[in-house]
Simulated assay, not measured.
Amino acid sequence: MTAQHRDLRQLQHQAAELDARLAATRHTARSSDQLVTVTVTGQEKLLDLRIDDRALHGAHVQKLGFDIVEAVRNARAAARASSLPHLNALFGKQPPPPPPSATGPAAPPQAAAPEPARRAAAPEDEENFADLDFLTDDEPDAGGGRW
């Protein structure tokens, strides 16, 4: 067995151990309104989703989907932040620099990506839906010429 083959086997073994540790690790996060709680593994796999009864009977039940997505993102971000140093150590990479803080030195400016070209819409192509009420059967004013 060559040294390179032995090193590869050792790396595979260490990766399998890390994968098992990440699978056993739990990260829990909540939505900003504290009504949705999510638990994920260190591998970012969703394990548990809990919705407070107040979210189902409150005035803003339509916001529930956003709260679920927010809680999942928060939990996965925590899992990623926790696992990144271990992954970097395993593969011999340096961790990324920490994000600049409000009190720390500013990061060097980066060139902004060019914005994609947009087609200017002709005024007759645009429609303004702000004044339409889609919830009633009332006909719009005859002077508007809409329908």
Rank of each mutant, 00 (worst) to 15 (best):
L8P: 02
Q10N: 07
L11D: 05
A15H: 04
E17A: 13
E17W: 06
E17Y: 06
D19Q: 06
D19M: 04
A20L: 08
A20T: 10
A23P: 03
A24C: 03
T25C: 05
R26L: 13
H27I: 01
H27A: 06
A29T: 03
A29Q: 02
S31K: 04
S32N: 11
S32T: 09
Q34T: 07
L35E: 03
T39M: 05
T39E: 08
E44A: 11
K45R: 10
L47C: 12
D48L: 11
I51L: 15
D53S: 13
D53Q: 14
A55L: 11
H57N: 15
V61M: 11
K63L: 14
F66S: 14
F66N: 12
D67C: 12
D67Q: 07
D67R: 02
I68P: 00
V69M: 14
E70L: 07
A71H: 00
R76V: 07
A77K: 09
A77L: 14
A78L: 15
A78R: 10
A79P: 00
R80I: 07
A81R: 10
A81D: 14
S82P: 00
S83M: 12
P85M: 11
H86T: 05
H86I: 04
H86F: 13
H86D: 15
N88L: 13
L90Q: 01
F91D: 01
Q94C: 10
P95V: 08
P97L: 14
P100W: 02
T103D: 15
T103G: 10
T103E: 15
P105R: 01
A106K: 05
A106F: 06
A106C: 01
A107D: 15
P109M: 09
Q110K: 10
A111V: 14
A112N: 10
A113T: 15
P114C: 08
P116E: 14
P116L: 12
A117Q: 09
R119I: 13
A120E: 12
A121R: 08
E124T: 12
E124L: 08
E126M: 06
N128W: 00
F129W: 13
D131R: 11
D133F: 04
L135Y: 14
L135F: 15
T136E: 09
T136W: 06
D137P: 03
D138C: 04
D138M: 05
E139R: 06
D141M: 07
A142C: 03
A142T: 09
A142K: 04
